[in-house]
Design a protein around this nucleic acid. Structure first.
Length: 419
RNA sequence: GGAAGGUUGGCAGAGUGGUCGAAUGCGCCGCACUUGAAAUGCGGUAUGCCGAAAGGCAUCGGAGGUUCGAAUCCUCCACCUUCCGCCA
């Protein structure tokens, strides 16, 4: 959640920054009104509670209690009423706060949507084909790597079976990611994939625009995570970390569940956009002054991984209108998809500053005893999407796929051929 | 799924209706002593919210309830431990 003192101290600046993220400034006004009312109500309530506390002590030592007891009973009733008002206001206030995403940094490229993202660099050579390149699904189906038809019958739309080398490639990417990054001080983790509502709210992933995206299991009051990030970030819930242990880095593997509500028309074919996929994810906890550097570090990890796969890619800085809810700055890495003749997102890399740590109480303390909220960052290491990019970029005229050198080591073969 | 016992500050652990935000010990921080360290002594040491501040309010796993007043009594829930059942 956002720092309310920023909103209180300079609401105009907050409005301006949030409008860059396509948030209506009236949302801030609404919060401010509720916040003021709520605070007034608290002042009233606490005054009465103070009176009650004094009175209660007097009753404890009084000889003749009758008169005091009558007074206390009246007071009790008033406190109950005002406390109800306070609860109602508090709920509304918190809902209003929940409708405000993290502020973008001042210097983030401004724009309305993904078309205005800023390309930072393009890396790698795009393949040249002396034939019409096929799309990944056509290739995958002919090599028996992906089956979406049966998946549709068994599980519904936007599911797929990864099979044969398709399955092996996922394990290879997982292993490659770990082998590459573990020397940089990441702790490997396999986290839970179910998460309680309270924690989920705390990390800002059940906010107004996100809730519809989550799978919820009512009977047990838990959500399925949309990313390993979601249960990794709360790994230090309620903890104050000594600064000497920062940065704290984790790399986690989990299945990710997404309802893909509101993306009905998009990428319906194949498995570029599915309800369930696996992903390896980076997480960092850092001191505030280090988060921009850590952000670039995580991006460099992602680029190293892409370069190992010999995939042509580009790095973009997401413009304000295309940034994630929790993000103050976001980079995406996009792989080249020859059949679409464009780059498609395979990785994202976010600095969420203290937006998530505030909600779960993850702090740090310095040597001289100062405390503050840590900054958290999250970034994709590998999801399943790079497999699709590999199929397209390394396809051959005869319908096989020549594997990048590093993956042929993991798979024990250099080419995927028809069965 | 069934049964029993638990959940108190960084940790251990007292506390069964008012004087308890909470004894005591350990840990940690500061000071003294010391050439330095250890030991010892003295002092300090939970969090959140509201408030310009003074200060106030809240918090003893969570949510309700009883009461003028709840760490303490009642109800429900979560979690932990052990046992039975089931199970990869």
């Amino acid at each position: 959640m956002l720092d309310v003192t920023i909103l209180r101290n300079d609401p105009e600046r907050a409005k301006e920054l949030l409008s860059r993220k396509n948030i209506d400034p009236k949302t801030v006004d609404k919060f401010m009104r509720l916040d003021t009312d709520w605070r007034q109500k608290i002042a009233t309530l606490e005054g009465l509670q103070g009176e009650q506390n004094t009175l209660t002590k007097e009753i404890g030592i009084a000889q003749n209690k009758d008169e005091l007891l009558t007074k206390a009973q009246i007071l009790k009733k008033r406190i109950a009423e005002i406390s109800e008002d306070r609860d109602a206001l508090e709920k509304k206030r918190n809902e209003a706060l929940n409708r405000l995403p993290n502020l973008p940094f001042e210097d983030v490229t401004q724009g309305k949507d993904e078309n205005e993202n800023k390309v930072i660099r393009e890396v790698g050579k795009r393949p040249e084909f002396d034939f019409e390149p096929k799309d990944y699904l056509t290739i995958a189906e002919s090599l028996q790597l992906i089956n979406t038809e049966v998946a549709a019958k068994v599980s519904g739309s936007r599911f797929g079976y990864l099979m044969n080398e398709g399955a092996l490639l996922e394990f290879a990417l997982l292993r490659l990611a770990l082998d590459t990054v573990l020397p940089h001080g990441f702790t490997p983790v396999i986290p839970p994939i179910m998460i309680r509502p309270k924690i989920y709210e705390g990390i800002g992933r059940l906010a107004a625009d996100q809730k519809e995206e989550r799978y919820y299991i009512e009977k047990d009051d838990v959500y399925l995570v949309g990313s390993a990030e979601h249960t990794l970030i709360p790994l230090h819930v309620g903890e104050t970390l000594d600064e000497k242990y920062l940065p704290k880095r984790y790399v986690g593997f989990s299945t990710c569940f997404r309802r893909e509500a509101g993306s009905y028309g998009k990428d319906t074919r194949g498995i570029l956009r599915v309800h369930q996929f696996d992903k390896v994810e980076f997480i960092s906890f850092v001191k505030p002054e280090d988060s921009e550097n850590e952000h670039r570090f995580l991006l460099s990890m992602q680029e190293t991984l892409m370069q190992k796969l010999e995939l042509p890619y580009r790095v973009v800085e997401n413009c304000t209108g295309d940034m994630g809810w929790t993000d103050a700055r976001q980079f995406d890495v996009e792989a080249w998809f020859p059949s679409q003749n464009k780059y498609r997102e395979t990785h994202s890399c976010s600095n969420t500053t203290d937006f998530q740590s505030r909600g779960i109480g993850t702090k740090y303390k310095t040597r001289d005893g100062k405390k503050g909220l840590v900054h958290t960052l999250n970034a994709t290491a590998f999801s399943q999407r790079p497999i699709l990019a590999i199929l397209e970029n390394f396809q051959t005229k005869k319908g096989t796929v020549k594997l990048p050198k590093i993956l042929s080591e993991y798979l024990g073969k250099s080419e995927i051929v028809p069965k």
